[in-house]
Design a protein around this nucleic acid. Sequence first.
DNA 1: TTCTCGTTATGACAGGATTGCATAACGAGA
DNA 2: TCTCGTTATGCAATCCTGTCATAACGAGAA
Lengths: 118, 118
Amino acid sequence: MTKDMKVKSKIWIEVDGEPVFGRGRRFLLQAIDRYGSISQAAKEINISYRKAWSYIKAMEERLGIKLVNRHTGGRDGGGATLTDEARKFLRRYEMLEEGIREIVDERFREIFGEGVNG
Amino acid sequence: MTKDMKVKSKIWIEVDGEPVFGRGRRFLLQAIDRYGSISQAAKEINISYRKAWSYIKAMEERLGIKLVNRHTGGRDGGGATLTDEARKFLRRYEMLEEGIREIVDERFREIFGEGVNG
DNA sequence: TTCTCGTTATGACAGGATTGCATAACGAGA
DNA sequence: TCTCGTTATGCAATCCTGTCATAACGAGAA
């Protein structure tokens, strides 16, 4: 019998054994860049503001670099933008991720292509 | 400043969107093969018997194949051995995993080799 | 000056998932 | 019949994760 098997892959970056950056955080930073707001970005990628905030805090602490410039108050309530360091980091991470999934998928098809019992 | 960053990668197999097999379960099956006992295997890889048992149950249910032959009782209390299907599956998974990590590590070194700010 | 508004910033709590403890069942050999 | 180490499983406790509520903020409008 052949089940509907799929291979999944994931890469992330750790500092001192603690996860610091992965696909989710990448989406978050990208969304902040687009919207200029943590709150809007969180809504966009379907996580709570609380969680987005925790992510950013942890990333900045562990990487030791400032990723997001925030300001509160003002007519529009405030906002947030990416620092240059964040953009640079993001670009590199995108390069790292690129292609990995394709490699994994291809390998999986080669080996498990015919199902569990093939 | 250069932090001690590491890239981590993980691959696993899903059936119907539920995780079925990954590195931990691979270690478990390999240990069962070595020791002829779920209990010993669990001890070896530092998980509780309870957890090992849950893993096996879930794997068998989701993959739809029997992975472990168990027998209870007897002078030595019982034991467990891998089925041929389990060995075959294991071999394939090892092939799948092999090399992936190297590819990821190499890519990481190329891109982040000089540290966060490099 | 005072008020408004949407955002950032956190603490507190709830619900779910995970882990681990306790205990039963088992059966070959002494 | 008794022992022993293993498989098997319910259940309680613990740990995470996500959610809710609420404060602080400050530029511009009134």
